Amino acid sequence: GYRKEQERLGIPYDPIQWSTDQVLHWVVWVMKEFSMTDIDLTTLNISGRELCSLNQEDFFQRVPRGEILWSHLELLRKY
């Protein structure tokens, strides 16, 4: 899972600490993992702090059909 990727690349476990690059890395990883092609990366060119401050409605406004990303983010925030 993504935890291995975080360990390998030194990405903080807590998404709130992610840099913009780390947010984009996570988005690309999830897209590959779940064979998603319809995500516009430019809408998530934000820091982890900004990402974690979005509520579900705001998130889906930025990322239509972003349910998998949202669920994955929720999982990461719990651990």
Rank of each mutant, 00 (worst) to 15 (best):
G1E: 08
G1M: 15
G1S: 08
R3F: 11
R3Q: 12
R3K: 10
R3L: 07
R3I: 13
R3N: 04
R3S: 07
R3E: 14
K4V: 12
K4M: 12
K4R: 13
K4W: 09
E5K: 02
E5D: 05
E5Y: 08
E5R: 01
E5Q: 04
Q6M: 13
Q6R: 03
Q6E: 06
Q6D: 03
E7T: 10
E7L: 07
E7V: 07
E7G: 05
R8W: 05
R8Q: 08
R8H: 07
R8Y: 05
R8F: 05
L9S: 07
L9I: 10
L9N: 10
L9Q: 15
G10H: 11
G10A: 11
G10N: 15
I11W: 06
I11C: 04
I11V: 05
I11T: 02
I11H: 03
I11S: 01
P12N: 04
P12R: 00
P12Q: 00
P12T: 03
P12F: 00
P12W: 00
P12L: 00
Y13D: 11
Y13K: 13
Y13P: 11
Y13T: 08
Y13V: 09
Y13N: 14
Y13E: 14
D14A: 05
D14M: 02
D14L: 02
P15Q: 01
P15N: 03
P15M: 03
P15L: 03
P15A: 03
P15T: 00
I16V: 13
I16A: 13
I16T: 11
I16E: 15
I16C: 15
I16D: 09
I16G: 05
Q17D: 15
Q17E: 15
Q17M: 08
Q17P: 00
Q17H: 15
Q17Y: 13
W18Y: 03
W18P: 00
S19T: 15
S19Y: 03
S19D: 12
S19V: 00
T20F: 03
T20C: 09
T20E: 15
T20K: 15
D21T: 09
D21A: 12
D21E: 14
D21Y: 06
D21M: 08
D21W: 07
Q22N: 12
Q22A: 05
Q22R: 00
Q22K: 02
Q22G: 01
V23K: 02
V23F: 01
V23G: 00
L24F: 09
L24K: 12
L24N: 11
H25T: 09
H25C: 06
H25R: 05
H25P: 00
W26K: 01
W26Y: 04
W26V: 00
W26T: 00
W26E: 00
W26I: 02
W26N: 01
V27D: 02
V27L: 07
V27R: 04
V28I: 13
V28N: 10
W29P: 00
W29Y: 09
W29Q: 03
W29E: 03
W29L: 02
W29V: 01
W29S: 04
V30F: 05
V30E: 10
V30L: 09
M31I: 12
M31R: 08
M31Q: 15
M31C: 15
K32P: 02
K32E: 13
K32H: 13
K32N: 13
K32L: 04
E33T: 10
E33Q: 09
E33W: 03
E33N: 07
E33V: 06
E33F: 04
E33L: 04
F34R: 12
F34I: 08
F34L: 08
S35H: 14
S35V: 08
S35P: 10
S35C: 12
S35D: 15
M36A: 13
M36P: 07
M36R: 13
M36K: 11
M36G: 07
M36V: 13
M36C: 15
T37E: 15
T37R: 12
T37W: 09
T37Y: 09
T37K: 15
D38E: 15
D38A: 08
D38P: 14
D38F: 04
I39R: 05
I39A: 07
I39M: 13
I39C: 12
D40T: 06
D40L: 01
D40Y: 03
D40M: 03
D40V: 04
D40N: 12
D40K: 06
L41M: 14
L41D: 04
L41Y: 13
T42R: 13
T42S: 14
T42W: 07
T43H: 08
T43D: 15
T43N: 12
L44S: 02
L44K: 01
L44R: 00
N45K: 15
N45Q: 10
N45T: 14
N45V: 09
I46C: 08
I46Q: 02
I46F: 06
I46N: 03
I46R: 01
S47R: 06
S47Q: 06
S47T: 15
S47G: 08
G48D: 02
G48T: 02
G48N: 03
G48H: 05
G48C: 01
G48F: 02
R49K: 10
R49W: 08
R49D: 10
R49G: 09
R49H: 08
R49N: 06
E50W: 03
E50M: 06
E50P: 00
E50N: 06
E50C: 10
E50I: 08
L51R: 02
L51H: 01
C52V: 09
C52I: 15
C52F: 05
C52D: 05
C52W: 03
C52G: 03
C52Y: 04
C52H: 03
C52R: 03
S53H: 07
S53D: 15
S53W: 04
S53A: 11
L54D: 01
L54T: 03
N55R: 13
N55K: 07
N55V: 08
N55T: 13
Q56N: 04
Q56I: 08
Q56A: 12
Q56K: 14
E57M: 08
E57W: 08
E57G: 12
E57A: 14
E57V: 10
D58Y: 08
D58C: 07
D58H: 08
D58R: 10
D58V: 10
D58Q: 13
D58K: 09
F59S: 03
F59N: 02
F59C: 00
F60S: 14
F60W: 07
F60V: 15
F60A: 13
F60E: 11
F60P: 04
Q61T: 14
Q61S: 14
Q61A: 13
Q61Y: 07
R62Y: 08
R62V: 12
R62M: 15
V63R: 00
V63P: 03
V63I: 10
V63E: 03
V63S: 06
V63W: 12
V63Y: 06
P64S: 06
P64T: 05
R65A: 14
R65I: 07
R65Q: 15
R65D: 15
R65V: 08
R65G: 14
R65K: 13
G66R: 03
G66C: 05
E67P: 06
E67K: 15
E67V: 09
E67N: 10
E67Q: 09
I68D: 05
I68R: 12
I68K: 14
I68T: 11
L69T: 00
L69R: 00
L69I: 04
L69G: 00
L69Y: 06
L69F: 13
L69W: 04
W70D: 02
W70S: 01
W70G: 01
S71T: 15
S71F: 09
S71E: 13
S71A: 12
S71K: 09
H72P: 00
H72D: 07
H72T: 04
H72S: 08
H72A: 06
H72L: 02
H72Y: 04
H72R: 05
H72F: 01
L73W: 07
L73S: 01
L73V: 04
L73N: 00
L73T: 00
E74N: 06
E74V: 07
E74W: 05
E74A: 11
L75M: 12
L75I: 15
L75H: 15
L76H: 05
L76T: 05
L76G: 00
L76S: 03
L76D: 01
L76A: 04
L76Y: 03
L76F: 05
R77T: 06
R77V: 05
R77L: 08
R77H: 11
R77Q: 05
K78S: 12
K78L: 08
K78Y: 07
K78I: 14
K78R: 14
Y79D: 15
Y79S: 15
Y79R: 11
